[in-house]
Computed example of a mutant assay.
Amino acid sequence: MSESATTGRQELTSAQEEELVARMLRHQVGIEPDHCGAVIDLAAVGLVNSAWRNSPAEDWHAGDGPLSDGDMLRINSHTTGRVRDIIRRGAPTAASTPMHPSPTWTNSTSRRSTGSRASCAVG
């Protein structure tokens, strides 16, 4: 028996799911979903946050551990930057979705995105 049959909820179509994510990004997060750079940055923050939660690094920061707030800030900032770079390297392939039909690199040295729905730049 499917989940929708047991919960009484209808499954979302791909278009409905895309619109829901777009509304959440706009209204709850404050970023434009067609701005690939902002979405990639948000994904990097989420991945790093998920990786650190309940980890030894968080334990070292807790209480009298050896990591200060400044240490954690530097660790999180560095790790988020590295994860963002890894995601962006794969973005021309990974971002090829209906929301991002033709991602392109605009400048290999720039880390700012100037993407739009027609051409989602992630460089």
Results as ranks from 00 to 15, higher is better:
P98R: 14
S116K: 09
D64R: 14
G70C: 03
G63C: 01
A22P: 03
E11M: 13
G8N: 05
R89K: 14
A57E: 00
R117K: 15
A22I: 00
S77A: 14
R74G: 03
W105I: 08
E32C: 08
R117A: 15
T114A: 14
A5N: 00
V122A: 11
S119T: 11
S55D: 01
S119E: 09
S102H: 15
P103F: 09
G123V: 01
S2I: 00
C120S: 13
V48R: 03
E11F: 11
G81D: 03
R9N: 05
L12F: 15
D71V: 03
A15R: 14
G63K: 02
M72K: 06
L47V: 12
S102C: 14
T97K: 14
S110E: 02
L42Q: 12
Q28K: 15
I75Q: 01
Q28R: 15
A51I: 04
P101Q: 05
R26E: 10
Q28S: 15
V39R: 01
P103K: 06
I40C: 02
A44Q: 05
H61Q: 01
S108D: 04
C120K: 07
L20K: 13
G115Y: 00
D71W: 04
L25I: 08
V29C: 11
S108V: 02
I40D: 01
G115V: 02
V39N: 06
I40K: 00
S14D: 13
V83Y: 07
T106Q: 08
A94N: 12
L67Y: 12
V29A: 13
H35D: 08
R112G: 13
I31Y: 02
E11L: 15
V48G: 06
N76D: 08
M1K: 08
G90F: 06
L73F: 12
R112P: 09
T93R: 14
W52C: 07
R74E: 03
R23G: 05
R23E: 11
T93D: 15
S50W: 01
G37M: 00
G37V: 01
G90M: 05
I40Y: 02
A121I: 00
Q16W: 06
N76P: 05
G81P: 02
M24N: 13
W105C: 11
T93V: 15
A57H: 00
